[in-house]
Each structure stands twice: as structure tokens, then as C-alpha cells.
């Protein structure tokens, strides 16, 4: 690792940091910048006065209004992706002190509690950088198409209610359905690698989020109709068998999606599917 990060970010440490946060301090934001695809990256540091309850987004907003580095050089506002700022849209994911997470829910007090502490912001590494902290996550959505992550309804006409469902199944599906396609699980996955060439997306590791979505729809009474299609895709190169069981995905998932259980479930379904297909020929 080229960079050493000052603070570990376990939940306990973050809470402890909060209690010793100093009021009226400044934080040093070290931002990895890049003007565009193929351009060289560079580091820029900004001194930002910390307000109570400030998060990384607020720091970036401050920088946008005052784009001057610690060295006194005028620069441009930092480009970053953001949406709801409530940790439900998944847009503002980036590496904070080296680890993937949403910047909206990242409190400065938890990461840089003392005067002059540094917080490091970098773009995700598994997706091509567009500019600065903004990366192109199109592949992540393409994966959802790969596993046909939808219920094949007959149409939007009034055809009565959907299938009944037990509260237990609903709860399981809800847990998976909270996935906001942020990409943390892919960023942290040692098996998921950056593929700038779109042509290779169909054959490179699809990642935990899409495997979990396949399980979500395989578990729905109508969604099941496409179960074999989904499993066949996940038996292909880049499918579920590419998982290396590092289980980082489930630990970095901000929504607590049971990703490793999904991987195992799909593993089971694929096992059964391959035997059935071998013996039935279908």
C-alpha cells in the first residue's frame, strides 16, 4: 500500500473518536484527483473548518465554495457523485481512508477527531474514473441485466394481486431488496477486478450484489420463472463459482444485505441445476 491511513475504522473506534472530537478544529482533506480518463492522478489537500455533525459531503461542499489548497493554490471544485445523502441511493460511494463507504454517512468526528487530523478521499478502484472521485459504475447495472433481475410480469394491466407470501419470505426478500447498487461489495472483493473494456463484462466476475439479486428473484413466485436462465448465467465464466469466499462483501455492505448467504444459496441452486441439467438434458 502506498498510503498509510491514520485511523482504523471499526465501529468502536469511530464511536470512541466521536467522544474525543475537538470543537472548532480543522480537518485536512487529502483528495485524490484526476482530470479525466487516461490523465495522471495527483493529490490535493484542503484545510476545512469542522462544524458539528459535519460529514464528508459537507467538506466537499466547503471545498467547492473555497477551492484553494493548503498550499494556497487555486484549483477547481472536486467532482464527485452524490444523490440522496441519506445512504439509500448509493451514489456517493468512495474510498475514505482506503475503505469503500458512502461519504454522506461518514462523519468527520469519527474519522478525524483531532486538530489537523487527515481524512483521505479516493475514487473507487474497481471502476474507471470519470473525474476526481466520480467513477463509472455502468458495469454494476449491466450485471443486473445479466441475471435478469426482474419479475417477468404479463404487463401493467389490472390483473389482480400478486402471489401471496409469508412474512418470513417477505423479510428475507426485503433484506436483499435493500441493495442500493453502491458497489462497496465489489470494491472490497479481491476477486472482482476492474474491467475497462465493456466487451469483457459478460465474462468477468459478476460480484456479490448481482448474485444476491438473482437469489432475490429466484425466491419470488413469479420471478422463479427465470430461475434457470439466471442460474445458467451464473454457471458461466464470471459467475458464482468465481467467488473466493473472502467474505469482505458482507462486512462492507452498508445495508447489511446477507451477501454471503446469497452466494451460498446460489451455489446450492447451481449445484442442483447442473445435476438436473446433466441428467434431464434440459
Amino acid at each position: 500500500m502506498a498510503i498509510a491511513y491514520a485511523h482504523e475504522s471499526t465501529a468502536d473506534q469511530r464511536r470512541a473518536n466521536r467522544t474525543r472530537a475537538v470543537e472548532g478544529r480543522t480537518v485536512l482533506c487529502r483528495v485524490r484527483r484526476c482530470d479525466g480518463p487516461g490523465k495522471a492522478g495527483r493529490w490535493e489537500s484542503f484545510k476545512v473548518p469542522v462544524e458539528p455533525g459535519m460529514n464528508v459531503i459537507a467538506c466537499l461542499k466547503h471545498i467547492a465554495q473555497n477551492p484553494v489548497t493548503v498550499d494556497g493554490n487555486t484549483t477547481t471544485p472536486v467532482v464527485y457523485d452524490a444523490g440522496c445523502l441519506e445512504e439509500v441511493c448509493g451514489a456517493c460511494t468512495m474510498l475514505i481512508n482506503g475503505m469503500a463507504r458512502q461519504s454522506c454517512s461518514c462523519l468527520i468526528d469519527e474519522y478525524a477527531p483531532l486538530e489537523g487530523d487527515t481524512i483521505t478521499l479516493e475514487p473507487m478502484t474497481k471502476f474507471p474514473v470519470i473525474r476526481d472521485l466520480w467513477v463509472d459504475r455502468a458495469r454494476l447495472f449491466q450485471s443486473l441485466t445479466r441475471v435478469k433481475a426482474w419479475v417477468p410480469i404479463d404487463g401493467t394491466y389490472a390483473l389482480g394481486a400478486g402471489p401471496k407470501e409469508s412474512p418470513e419470505v417477505q423479510q428475507d426478500r426485503y433484506d436483499m431488496s435493500e441493495c442500493m447498487s453502491c458497489g462497496c461489495c465489489l470494491e472490497a472483493c479481491p476477486q472482482f477486478t476492474i474491467e475497462p473494456d465493456e466487451a469483457s463484462w459478460d465474462t468477468s466476475f459478476i460480484g456479490a450484489h448481482a448474485i444476491s439479486q438473482a437469489r432475490l428473484f429466484n425466491g419470488h413466485a413469479t420471478g422463479k420463472e427465470l430461475k434457470n436462465d439466471r442460474l445458467d448465467e451464473l454457471m458461466n465464466p464470471g459467475g458464482v463459482s468465481e467467488c473466493g469466499n473472502a467474505q469482505n462483501c458482507v462486512k462492507v455492505c452498508p445495508k447489511g444485505v446477507p451477501l454471503t448467504e446469497s452466494i451460498a444459496t446460489i451455489g446450492r441452486q447451481v449445484t442442483i441445476r447442473s445435476f438436473t441439467r446433466f441428467f434431464s438434458g434440459k
Binding site: 500500500m1 482504523e8 482506503g98 475503505m99 472490497a188 479481491p190 473466493g244 469466499n245 473472502a246 467474505q247 469482505n248 462486512k251 462492507v252
Partner: peptide, 10 residues
């Protein structure tokens, strides 16, 4: 970057 025991295991 991700110092989880499971990641070490991997």
C-alpha cells in the same frame, strides 16, 4: 485495506 480475519483467510 480490508483487514478482516476472513480476508486474511482468503
Amino acid at each position: 485495506a480490508y483487514k478482516y480475519p476472513d480476508n486474511w483467510r482468503y
